[in-house]
């Protein structure tokens, strides 16, 4: 009974420590978004600005996702495991916010957080930002798991991941019919669902490329690169296939081009594109990662 009670106490203490780390994160968030200082450090009113609530809480979901990858090893001592969590948790917060800052600087290079979220309450911007937060968190989590408590490997893999994500976000303009900047200014929700589907799909594909056994960092990086290129080859097949299997009608026959444009900006088209991107990405991960070709060794 005493042992069970002791373990419960340890769990409760660690839960409190994780809360403390999230408190630390709240202040770290201010470093990257100094303009929200007043909102973040005061009580948050979700009804006042839903876009801002989504933007902020998506990051909290993200940091929770990353923290879930860190393990406590109580056998090495309670304080040492707390120290381990504090070090890796802090690292996770820094890397996560830095990744978000860099990726959002690439995607929203024409937009400003203060203008879009605080002044214009742009929900499209908030949803896209939400997707970024989740995807980057998921990828940082994957990279942290793969690094296996090695700081050097973590930094190498994180930089590598960031480069791949940076390229992948630019891929959206190739495969979507929607005009990103124009529709984002118009607060178009079709865009956010389409881009959301794309970024979540891309995140799944990239995470699956990183998720593999590794004994040598160079060979591992080569394998990740090869899998990423392979995904780029496979994904269009599924995207084209899904579009052919479920064809859509845009505008009436002989309609003016403007009518087709209006239909494309509808919420339905956003759902359609987003779903195609996610489904295509999931199927791509299956083709890239779930086929076991075997080796010659069972035979030889």
């Amino acid at each position: 009974m005493a042992e069970i009670f002791d373990r419960l106490v340890i769990r409760l203490l660690l839960a409190l420590f994780v809360c403390l780390m999230i408190y630390v994160y709240r202040y770290a968030h201010v470093i990257f978004y100094p303009t929200v200082k007043r909102q973040v450090l005061k009580k948050i009113n979700p009804a006042e600005n839903p876009a801002d609530s989504l933007h902020l809480f998506s990051r909290i979901i993200g940091i929770a996702l990353i923290f879930s990858s860190i393990t406590f090893n109580e056998t090495s001592g309670f304080f040492l495991s707390i120290f381990h969590f504090a070090v890796w948790g802090t690292l996770a917060i820094i890397l996560y916010l830095l990744s978000l800052y860099i990726i959002e600087s690439i995607v929203f290079y024409n937009f400003d957080y203060t203008d879009e979220i605080l002044k214009r309450k742009n929900m499209s911007y908030a949803v896209i930002s939400f997707c970024h937060a989740i995807v980057i968190a998921y990828l940082t989590r994957t990279v942290m798991i793969e690094a296996e408590n090695s700081l050097v490997i973590l930094l190498v893999l994180w930089l590598y991941m960031l480069v791949i994500v940076g390229f992948s976000v630019k891929y959206y303009t190739f495969i979507s019919k929607l005009t990103f900047n124009r529709l984002l200014i118009q607060k178009n929700l079709s865009l956010c669902f389409s881009y959301g589907g794309f970024s979540l799909g891309a995140g799944l594909v990239i995470a699956s490329c990183f998720d593999q056994e590794h004994y040598d960092i160079t060979v591992y990086c080569i394998q990740v690169l090869l899998k990423t290129i392979l995904s780029l080859i496979i994904f269009p097949i599924f995207k084209k296939g899904l579009v052919r299997i479920f064809p859509i009608k845009l505008g009436e026959e002989r309609a003016l081009e403007g009518r087709i444009d209006t239909d494309m900006q509808s919420l339905g088209y956003g759902f359609y594109e987003g779903s195609v991107f996610i489904a295509g990405a999931i199927l791509t991960t299956m083709i890239v990662n779930r086929i076991q070709f075997g080796t010659i060794y069972p035979f030889f």
């Binding site: 060979v219 080569i222 394998q223 690169l225 090869l226 290129i229 392979l230 080859i233």
Partner: peptide
Amino acid sequence: YLGLAKALSP
């Protein structure tokens, strides 16, 4: 892809 896989694959 084919070139890189040929050159770099373990």
